[in-house]
Simulated assay, not measured.
Amino acid sequence: MDRNSPHRQGKAVEIKGVSKVFGTFQALKPVTFDIYENEFFTLLGPSGCGKTTLLRMIAGFEQPTTGEIALRGANIQGLPPHRRRVNTVFQSYALFPHMTLEQNIAFGLENLGWEKQRREARVADMLRLVHMEKFAARKPQQLSGGQRQRIALARALAPEPEVLLLDEPLSALDLKLRQAMRDELRTLQRQTGITFVFVTHDQEEALDMSDHICVLGDGEIQQLGTPAEIYEEPSNRFVADFIGETNFLDAEVMAVEGERATVKVSLGMTLNAPQKKAETGRSAVMSIRPEKISIPAQDGQISMEGTIVGVNYLGGYTYYMVETGKTKLRVSLRNSVSRSGMFEVGQPIEVGFAADSARVLGA
């Protein structure tokens, strides 16, 4: 399924009022949402937010305190992990060190009672799928981290699960390899048509690969939507702060008109911008992403005078810290024409942004 397609297939997983309590600690408050067939779905959030707990409940390694989990419409409550049509890829890969790669992939199929000819054909197919045919006779310790990751994926996909669960599988890899594996994971999901449920705390991974993202924080759902919706239209301050970078400005809500609010912000101006949960007469914050701010200001933008007080060059982008009165703004500009156009510390400039690029977020 194309991540931009408005058409969604049947429900692969249904989470209905599921919560989890360990002793006196509530790891997950009741949550309800659906994961659709043939989509790449991501559970995203900081450590301790409940995302891995939720994944383990889908897998059957933990049981919900309340609620119900259904797989393709069938309640799987109480079913042990081996009787659920789901497989899990762990952060540690969990490969058997004494077995060859072929034997690792075949292990689960043997336990399922697949006959030899069918099993060997499936192992060969999986090795081709992850481009590891030449390494079939090797053992895991003879492989790089990325190669072990591929075999872990091949082993999990071999029994043709209805849902594949991935518990932060890229976190142990270096940056370059992690970026390459993101592309491979997305390609595998498209090729197999299997629903992937991916757990990560890495916002960039989630935005890059997902059809839909469920942002978890403090044990509850903060927002569920497409990557573009999560990034461009955060539902609250937690989401705006956790996903990417943003500038927060104190705001006083003067009036709310439907999906927009008129606010007075700490930059010393009044403007009308899109809003979420803002209330007239109440305090709020306005969020504006660094890349939404221009230097110099463009025609039609809200503009203000400022001074460059910090410069961070990051190759493709340069980040500027701009002081405007008592407020500092972080601005991101793409380096499209060499370094000759860069601004310098102490340089007076004019910055600007469109009101529609800002978001007013209530309590």
Rank of each mutant, 00 (worst) to 15 (best):
R150I: 10
E160P: 00
L164Q: 02
L166I: 05
L166A: 11
D167R: 08
D167E: 11
D167S: 07
E168N: 08
P169Y: 05
P169M: 11
A172G: 05
A172Y: 06
L173F: 05
L173K: 10
L177K: 07
A180G: 01
M181D: 00
L185H: 03
T187D: 12
T187I: 09
Q191M: 08
T192G: 05
G193M: 11
I194L: 01
T195V: 07
T195F: 00
F196V: 01
F196Q: 02
F198G: 07
F198I: 06
T200P: 01
T200S: 03
T200L: 03
H201L: 10
Q203T: 04
E205G: 06
M209N: 11
S210Q: 02
S210M: 08
D211K: 08
H212W: 07
G217K: 11
D218R: 15
D218M: 11
G219Q: 00
E220S: 14
I221P: 04
Q222V: 06
Q223W: 03
L224T: 07
L224K: 13
G225T: 08
P227C: 15
E229H: 12
I230Y: 03
S235L: 14
V239K: 03
V239Y: 04
V239I: 07
V239Q: 01
A240W: 00
F242I: 06
I243A: 10
F248K: 08
L249Y: 09
L249D: 11
V253R: 02
V253A: 08
R260E: 11
R260N: 09
A261N: 03
V265D: 04
N272Y: 10
N272V: 10
A273I: 11
P274Y: 04
Q275T: 02
K277L: 13
E279I: 07
E279C: 10
